[in-house]
Design a protein around this nucleic acid. Structure first.
Lengths: 145, 145
DNA sequence: CAGATCACTTGCAAAATGCAAGTGGAGATA
DNA sequence: TATCTCCACTTGCATTTTGCAAGTGATCTG
Protein backbone atom coordinates (compact mmCIF):
# COMPACT_ATOMS: atom_id res chain seq x y z
CA UNK A 1 0.00 0.00 0.00
CA UNK A 2 1.17 3.50 -0.74
CA UNK A 3 -0.31 5.12 2.35
CA UNK A 4 1.47 4.37 5.59
CA UNK A 5 -0.52 3.14 8.56
CA UNK A 6 0.40 2.98 12.19
CA UNK A 7 3.22 0.54 12.77
CA UNK A 8 2.47 -1.59 15.79
CA UNK A 9 5.74 -3.21 16.77
CA UNK A 10 7.04 -2.84 20.29
CA UNK A 11 10.80 -2.80 20.02
CA UNK A 12 11.49 0.11 17.76
CA UNK A 13 14.37 -0.34 15.30
CA UNK A 14 15.66 3.06 16.37
CA UNK A 15 16.99 1.37 19.48
CA UNK A 16 19.35 -0.55 17.27
CA UNK A 17 20.42 2.61 15.48
CA UNK A 18 20.89 4.33 18.84
CA UNK A 19 23.35 1.63 19.87
CA UNK A 20 25.60 2.53 16.96
CA UNK A 21 24.94 6.13 15.99
CA UNK A 22 24.04 7.18 19.52
CA UNK A 23 27.71 7.47 20.25
CA UNK A 24 29.49 10.61 19.19
CA UNK A 25 32.68 8.87 18.10
CA UNK A 26 31.04 6.05 16.14
CA UNK A 27 28.90 8.63 14.43
CA UNK A 28 31.91 10.72 13.42
CA UNK A 29 33.92 7.70 12.28
CA UNK A 30 31.03 6.74 10.07
CA UNK A 31 30.95 10.25 8.67
CA UNK A 32 34.69 10.13 7.99
CA UNK A 33 34.42 6.80 6.21
CA UNK A 34 31.26 7.50 4.20
CA UNK A 35 31.66 11.18 3.42
CA UNK A 36 35.35 11.91 3.60
CA UNK A 37 36.81 8.71 2.22
CA UNK A 38 38.93 7.99 5.28
CA UNK A 39 40.18 4.45 5.63
CA UNK A 40 43.23 4.33 7.90
CA UNK A 41 43.81 4.73 11.62
CA UNK A 42 45.97 7.78 10.89
CA UNK A 43 43.28 9.42 8.82
CA UNK A 44 40.58 8.84 11.41
CA UNK A 45 42.89 10.12 14.13
CA UNK A 46 43.39 13.36 12.24
CA UNK A 47 39.75 14.46 12.47
CA UNK A 48 39.31 17.99 13.75
CA UNK A 49 37.28 16.72 16.71
CA UNK A 50 40.42 15.17 18.19
CA UNK A 51 39.64 11.58 19.12
CA UNK A 52 42.22 10.01 21.42
CA UNK A 53 44.08 6.89 20.40
CA UNK A 54 42.54 4.49 22.90
CA UNK A 55 39.01 5.59 22.05
CA UNK A 56 39.74 5.34 18.35
CA UNK A 57 41.02 1.78 18.71
CA UNK A 58 38.01 0.91 20.85
CA UNK A 59 35.47 2.31 18.39
CA UNK A 60 37.13 0.84 15.33
CA UNK A 61 36.93 -2.62 16.85
CA UNK A 62 33.37 -1.98 17.98
CA UNK A 63 32.38 -0.97 14.47
CA UNK A 64 34.20 -3.98 13.10
CA UNK A 65 32.34 -6.23 15.54
CA UNK A 66 29.08 -4.63 14.44
CA UNK A 67 29.82 -5.47 10.83
CA UNK A 68 30.21 -1.84 9.76
CA UNK A 69 33.92 -2.00 8.92
CA UNK A 70 36.28 -4.69 7.73
CA UNK A 71 39.87 -4.56 8.93
CA UNK A 72 42.31 -5.40 6.16
CA UNK A 73 46.01 -4.91 5.47
CA UNK A 74 46.73 -1.80 3.47
CA UNK A 75 47.49 -2.90 -0.12
CA UNK A 76 49.99 -0.04 -0.41
CA UNK A 77 51.96 -1.11 2.63
CA UNK A 78 51.40 -4.47 4.27
CA UNK A 79 52.40 -3.24 7.70
CA UNK A 80 49.61 -0.70 7.65
CA UNK A 81 45.87 -1.29 8.05
CA UNK A 82 42.71 -0.21 6.27
CA UNK A 83 39.19 -0.08 7.58
CA UNK A 84 36.72 -0.44 4.74
CA UNK A 85 33.03 0.34 5.21
CA UNK A 86 30.84 -2.70 4.58
CA UNK A 87 27.62 -2.65 2.61
CA UNK A 88 25.80 -2.26 5.90
CA UNK A 89 27.74 0.92 6.55
CA UNK A 90 27.28 2.15 3.01
CA UNK A 91 23.55 1.62 3.32
CA UNK A 92 23.60 4.06 6.20
CA UNK A 93 24.54 6.85 3.81
CA UNK A 94 20.99 8.08 3.04
CA UNK A 95 20.32 8.49 6.77
CA UNK A 96 23.59 10.34 7.22
CA UNK A 97 22.92 12.66 4.32
CA UNK A 98 19.45 13.22 5.68
CA UNK A 99 20.99 14.40 8.94
CA UNK A 100 23.38 16.65 7.05
CA UNK A 101 20.46 18.32 5.36
CA UNK A 102 18.77 18.87 8.69
CA UNK A 103 21.95 20.19 10.32
CA UNK A 104 22.64 22.48 7.39
CA UNK A 105 19.25 24.02 8.01
CA UNK A 106 19.67 24.53 11.76
CA UNK A 107 23.34 24.87 12.58
CA UNK A 108 24.19 28.52 12.14
CA UNK A 109 27.87 27.69 12.48
CA UNK A 110 27.94 25.09 9.75
CA UNK A 111 30.17 25.82 6.82
CA UNK A 112 28.03 23.89 4.39
CA UNK A 113 26.64 25.96 1.57
CA UNK A 114 22.87 26.20 1.43
CA UNK A 115 23.14 24.90 -2.11
CA UNK A 116 23.82 21.47 -0.66
CA UNK A 117 20.37 21.19 0.89
CA UNK A 118 18.85 22.61 -2.27
CA UNK A 119 20.57 20.11 -4.51
CA UNK A 120 19.58 17.31 -2.17
CA UNK A 121 15.92 18.31 -2.18
CA UNK A 122 16.16 18.67 -5.92
CA UNK A 123 17.78 15.30 -6.49
CA UNK A 124 18.27 13.17 -3.36
CA UNK A 125 19.14 10.02 -5.25
CA UNK A 126 21.71 11.87 -7.31
CA UNK A 127 23.29 13.33 -4.19
CA UNK A 128 23.54 9.95 -2.52
CA UNK A 129 24.73 8.30 -5.71
CA UNK A 130 27.51 10.85 -5.91
CA UNK A 131 28.78 9.93 -2.46
CA UNK A 132 28.49 6.24 -3.23
CA UNK A 133 30.49 6.64 -6.40
CA UNK A 134 33.10 8.58 -4.49
CA UNK A 135 33.39 5.76 -1.94
CA UNK A 136 33.70 3.14 -4.67
CA UNK A 137 36.41 5.21 -6.28
CA UNK A 138 38.37 5.43 -3.03
CA UNK A 139 38.09 1.71 -2.28
CA UNK A 140 38.82 0.68 -5.84
CA UNK A 141 41.97 2.78 -5.89
CA UNK A 142 43.06 1.35 -2.55
CA UNK A 143 42.40 -2.28 -3.27
CA UNK A 144 44.16 -2.29 -6.59
CA UNK A 145 47.21 -0.98 -4.77
CA UNK B 1 21.52 21.77 -10.80
CA UNK B 2 20.10 18.30 -10.56
CA UNK B 3 23.44 16.51 -10.35
CA UNK B 4 25.29 16.85 -7.08
CA UNK B 5 28.91 17.90 -7.16
CA UNK B 6 31.58 17.64 -4.52
CA UNK B 7 30.77 19.82 -1.55
CA UNK B 8 33.89 21.65 -0.46
CA UNK B 9 33.18 22.95 3.05
CA UNK B 10 35.51 22.12 5.87
CA UNK B 11 33.34 21.92 8.96
CA UNK B 12 30.86 19.21 8.14
CA UNK B 13 27.32 19.77 9.41
CA UNK B 14 27.35 16.21 10.70
CA UNK B 15 29.41 17.49 13.61
CA UNK B 16 26.41 19.48 14.69
CA UNK B 17 24.14 16.48 14.36
CA UNK B 18 26.65 14.40 16.30
CA UNK B 19 26.41 16.82 19.20
CA UNK B 20 22.71 16.08 19.54
CA UNK B 21 22.02 12.67 18.07
CA UNK B 22 25.43 11.31 19.00
CA UNK B 23 24.11 10.74 22.48
CA UNK B 24 22.10 7.62 23.12
CA UNK B 25 19.61 9.27 25.47
CA UNK B 26 18.97 12.36 23.37
CA UNK B 27 18.47 10.11 20.40
CA UNK B 28 15.94 7.98 22.22
CA UNK B 29 14.08 10.97 23.67
CA UNK B 30 13.77 12.33 20.16
CA UNK B 31 12.40 9.00 19.04
CA UNK B 32 9.89 8.96 21.87
CA UNK B 33 8.71 12.47 21.07
CA UNK B 34 8.60 12.16 17.29
CA UNK B 35 7.52 8.58 16.85
CA UNK B 36 5.70 7.61 20.01
CA UNK B 37 3.95 10.86 20.89
CA UNK B 38 5.50 11.12 24.33
CA UNK B 39 5.36 14.52 25.93
CA UNK B 40 5.72 14.24 29.71
CA UNK B 41 8.57 13.41 32.07
CA UNK B 42 6.66 10.34 33.21
CA UNK B 43 6.18 9.08 29.68
CA UNK B 44 9.82 9.55 28.77
CA UNK B 45 10.86 7.86 32.00
CA UNK B 46 8.79 4.80 31.12
CA UNK B 47 10.81 3.90 28.00
CA UNK B 48 11.91 0.27 27.91
CA UNK B 49 15.57 1.35 27.83
CA UNK B 50 15.29 2.55 31.44
CA UNK B 51 16.72 6.06 31.61
CA UNK B 52 17.45 7.21 35.16
CA UNK B 53 15.78 10.29 36.55
CA UNK B 54 18.86 12.50 36.77
CA UNK B 55 19.91 11.72 33.21
CA UNK B 56 16.39 12.33 31.97
CA UNK B 57 16.25 15.75 33.63
CA UNK B 58 19.68 16.56 32.25
CA UNK B 59 18.81 15.58 28.68
CA UNK B 60 15.44 17.27 28.69
CA UNK B 61 17.04 20.55 29.65
CA UNK B 62 19.81 20.00 27.12
CA UNK B 63 17.28 19.44 24.37
CA UNK B 64 15.35 22.46 25.54
CA UNK B 65 18.53 24.55 25.44
CA UNK B 66 19.18 23.28 21.93
CA UNK B 67 15.77 24.43 20.82
CA UNK B 68 14.44 20.93 20.22
CA UNK B 69 11.81 20.94 22.96
CA UNK B 70 9.74 23.61 24.65
CA UNK B 71 8.89 23.13 28.29
CA UNK B 72 5.31 24.13 29.07
CA UNK B 73 2.79 23.49 31.83
CA UNK B 74 0.51 20.57 31.09
CA UNK B 75 -2.86 22.00 30.04
CA UNK B 76 -4.58 19.06 31.72
CA UNK B 77 -2.94 19.61 35.07
CA UNK B 78 -1.04 22.80 35.89
CA UNK B 79 1.35 21.08 38.28
CA UNK B 80 2.54 18.79 35.52
CA UNK B 81 4.85 19.62 32.62
CA UNK B 82 4.88 18.94 28.90
CA UNK B 83 7.82 18.87 26.55
CA UNK B 84 6.71 19.68 23.03
CA UNK B 85 8.97 19.06 20.05
CA UNK B 86 9.74 22.27 18.18
CA UNK B 87 9.73 22.63 14.41
CA UNK B 88 13.45 22.00 14.52
CA UNK B 89 12.81 18.65 16.19
CA UNK B 90 9.95 17.83 13.85
CA UNK B 91 12.20 18.55 10.89
CA UNK B 92 14.47 15.82 12.13
CA UNK B 93 11.78 13.23 11.43
CA UNK B 94 12.91 12.31 7.89
CA UNK B 95 16.40 11.56 9.18
CA UNK B 96 14.98 9.49 12.01
CA UNK B 97 12.72 7.53 9.70
CA UNK B 98 15.65 7.02 7.39
CA UNK B 99 17.56 5.43 10.26
CA UNK B 100 14.57 3.25 11.08
CA UNK B 101 14.54 1.93 7.56
CA UNK B 102 18.24 1.15 7.77
CA UNK B 103 17.90 -0.52 11.18
CA UNK B 104 14.91 -2.54 10.03
CA UNK B 105 17.10 -3.94 7.30
CA UNK B 106 20.06 -4.85 9.51
CA UNK B 107 18.82 -5.51 13.03
CA UNK B 108 17.80 -9.12 13.13
CA UNK B 109 16.23 -8.57 16.53
CA UNK B 110 14.02 -5.69 15.49
CA UNK B 111 10.33 -6.25 15.81
CA UNK B 112 9.48 -3.94 12.95
CA UNK B 113 7.67 -5.63 10.12
CA UNK B 114 9.47 -5.65 6.79
CA UNK B 115 6.39 -4.00 5.38
CA UNK B 116 7.47 -0.79 7.04
CA UNK B 117 10.59 -0.47 4.93
CA UNK B 118 8.62 -1.45 1.88
CA UNK B 119 5.94 1.15 2.44
CA UNK B 120 8.64 3.75 3.07
CA UNK B 121 10.44 2.96 -0.15
CA UNK B 122 7.12 2.97 -1.89
CA UNK B 123 5.99 6.28 -0.46
CA UNK B 124 8.53 8.04 1.77
CA UNK B 125 6.66 11.33 1.86
CA UNK B 126 3.45 9.56 2.82
CA UNK B 127 5.22 7.70 5.62
CA UNK B 128 6.70 10.87 7.03
CA UNK B 129 3.47 12.77 6.58
CA UNK B 130 1.70 10.11 8.59
CA UNK B 131 4.03 10.58 11.54
CA UNK B 132 3.74 14.36 11.27
CA UNK B 133 -0.02 14.19 11.31
CA UNK B 134 0.14 11.91 14.32
CA UNK B 135 2.33 14.43 16.16
CA UNK B 136 0.00 17.28 15.32
CA UNK B 137 -2.90 15.24 16.57
CA UNK B 138 -1.16 14.58 19.90
CA UNK B 139 -0.14 18.20 20.41
CA UNK B 140 -3.51 19.54 19.32
CA UNK B 141 -5.30 17.29 21.76
CA UNK B 142 -2.93 18.28 24.55
CA UNK B 143 -2.98 22.01 24.00
CA UNK B 144 -6.74 22.26 23.82
CA UNK B 145 -6.84 20.59 27.22
C1' DC C 1 -5.35 18.13 56.30
C1' DA C 2 -3.08 13.39 55.44
C1' DG C 3 -1.41 11.02 51.72
C1' DA C 4 -0.23 10.53 46.91
C1' DT C 5 1.90 12.34 42.78
C1' DC C 6 4.87 15.25 40.23
C1' DA C 7 9.31 16.74 38.53
C1' DC C 8 13.04 16.82 39.73
C1' DT C 9 17.87 16.91 43.04
C1' DT C 10 21.53 14.82 45.78
C1' DG C 11 25.13 11.48 47.16
C1' DC C 12 27.92 8.02 45.97
C1' DA C 13 30.02 3.97 43.68
C1' DA C 14 31.17 2.30 39.12
C1' DA C 15 32.17 2.98 34.43
C1' DA C 16 33.79 5.70 30.54
C1' DT C 17 36.80 9.24 28.88
C1' DG C 18 40.97 12.06 27.88
C1' DC C 19 45.75 12.58 28.11
C1' DA C 20 50.50 11.20 28.09
C1' DA C 21 53.63 7.79 27.74
C1' DG C 22 55.00 3.25 26.38
C1' DT C 23 55.17 -1.16 23.35
C1' DG C 24 56.23 -4.32 19.75
C1' DG C 25 56.59 -5.25 14.94
C1' DA C 26 57.64 -3.99 10.01
C1' DG C 27 60.25 -1.24 6.82
C1' DA C 28 63.73 2.09 5.73
C1' DT C 29 68.49 3.87 6.45
C1' DA C 30 73.54 3.82 7.39
C1' DT D 1 73.61 -5.86 10.82
C1' DA D 2 72.34 -2.25 13.82
C1' DT D 3 69.62 1.52 14.33
C1' DC D 4 65.89 4.53 13.37
C1' DT D 5 61.36 5.68 12.22
C1' DC D 6 56.64 4.81 11.50
C1' DC D 7 52.56 2.37 12.58
C1' DA D 8 48.74 0.69 15.23
C1' DC D 9 47.79 0.22 19.03
C1' DT D 10 48.03 -0.51 24.79
C1' DT D 11 48.66 1.03 29.52
C1' DG D 12 48.22 3.96 33.66
C1' DC D 13 46.05 7.40 35.81
C1' DA D 14 43.30 11.61 36.82
C1' DT D 15 38.85 13.51 35.57
C1' DT D 16 34.22 13.22 34.01
C1' DT D 17 29.96 10.95 33.26
C1' DT D 18 26.76 7.52 34.44
C1' DG D 19 23.50 4.64 37.07
C1' DC D 20 21.16 3.70 41.19
C1' DA D 21 18.79 4.80 45.40
C1' DA D 22 17.03 7.96 48.29
C1' DG D 23 15.32 12.48 49.31
C1' DT D 24 12.83 17.11 48.43
C1' DG D 25 9.42 20.52 47.93
C1' DA D 26 5.45 21.87 45.40
C1' DT D 27 0.95 20.57 44.05
C1' DC D 28 -3.27 17.78 43.88
C1' DT D 29 -6.71 14.44 45.87
C1' DG D 30 -9.95 12.35 49.09
Amino acid sequence: MATAGKPDWNGCPTRYAAGIVGDKWCFLLLRDALLHGKRTYREFLASPEGISTNILANRLSKLEALGMFTREPDPRKASSVCYFPTQKAKDFLPALVSMMVWATQYDEVTEAPASFAVSYVDDPKGTIAWYEAEMDRVDQALRTG
